[in-house]
Design a protein around this nucleic acid. Structure first.
Lengths: 160, 160
DNA sequence: GCCCAGCTTGACGTTTACGTAAACGTTGAC
DNA sequence: GTCAACGTTTACGTAAACGTCAAGCTGGGC
């Protein structure tokens, strides 16, 4: 029954979780090495509980937002030393905001790079158009999309 | 005179260029190792010409837009094997466009991460507000800025 | 002559997140 | 009985872009 999948006593093999979350066994073992996971053992084999599964979800979510494994571990540790949930939530919140700020910085960097790239492209296109128009990969539509997006961002950045 | 700085026969020491472009000597030597630069020698010491300076500028620009050193080298090589300028321009243009596409993908990834982060932040804030409002770092203004930007991007992404 | 500052080469260290063997044990299918 | 398919541990390899010594040469100032 599917219901079994939700029963808390259900456990998972390493491959179960790998399949479910598109990870590799090597990755899960690596996370364990780094102290992010600590599944039970059945003999030598790893046995993952629902709690482990949740932790893995948190790990992968952390990765998606660009946290390093050590940062993720810090956050997980916070939830573990769980004497007072509120304090840890506050710290997590702080961490998340820091990450958000960093990500915005990254995005601004990327926008800057895109502007520079587009200028370079424009120059190249112009010169090619003069000299060897036949070599111009026709990508007018592509460029329109590209510029539309950039303009949007430029507006947001400049016009506040 | 400042005019001397522009005279083509003016040469530069490694430190000159490092200071001008905020790089380290190690970096310039590294680029040389990788075949991106090949300054003249005066005894043992490196002597950079104007051409070398331009190449360095191109290298740094390439880095800013996220090209790897090997990709940059390919482009520089194109300009060197200079039998037909137009063909290389066309290839550079292609490379640049590929990079632009990749950067946009990266930016979308970042936006996705930011959305996930903001959701997490919102949940944390809400629960903290219920349980321990005193722990809430007051960052209302910060969040407004943050959301304004995100909304802007969301609009651009959704509204075509 | 001495010393320091700055240049040189060479080589190993760093970081992150695993990949990739190697070598072995366990279980189930046939 | 043996082969395949999983699991295990240990350990080295990878990629990028330099940082960080180490050890030595050289020119200039005093």
């Amino acid at each position: 029954m599917l219901a079994d999948l939700r029963r808390p006593e259900r456990t998972f093999t390493i491959r179960n979780l790998c399949n479910e979350f598109k990870a590799t066994p090597r990755a899960l073992r690596f996370y364990e090495d780094k102290g992010l996971l600590s599944p039970a053992r059945e003999g030598l084999n790893r046995v993952y509980s629902h709690k482990d599964r949740v932790r893995l979800q948190l790990i992968l979510r952390g990765k998606r937002v660009g946290l390093s494994l050590s940062e993720i571990r810090e956050l997980l540790d916070l939830y573990d030393e769980n004497d007072d949930g509120a304090a840890q939530m506050a710290r997590s919140l702080k961490k998340f905001r820091e990450r958000a700020t960093a990500l915005e910085q990254q995005r601004d960097d990327i926008d800057g790079a895109l502007i520079e790239l587009n200028q370079a492209c424009a120059r190249l296109e112009q010169r090619l158009a003069e000299i060897r128009p036949d070599l111009l990969p026709r990508a007018a539509d592509y460029d329109q999309v590209l510029r539309a997006r950039l303009d949007g961002h430029a507006d947001a950045a400049l016009g506040k």
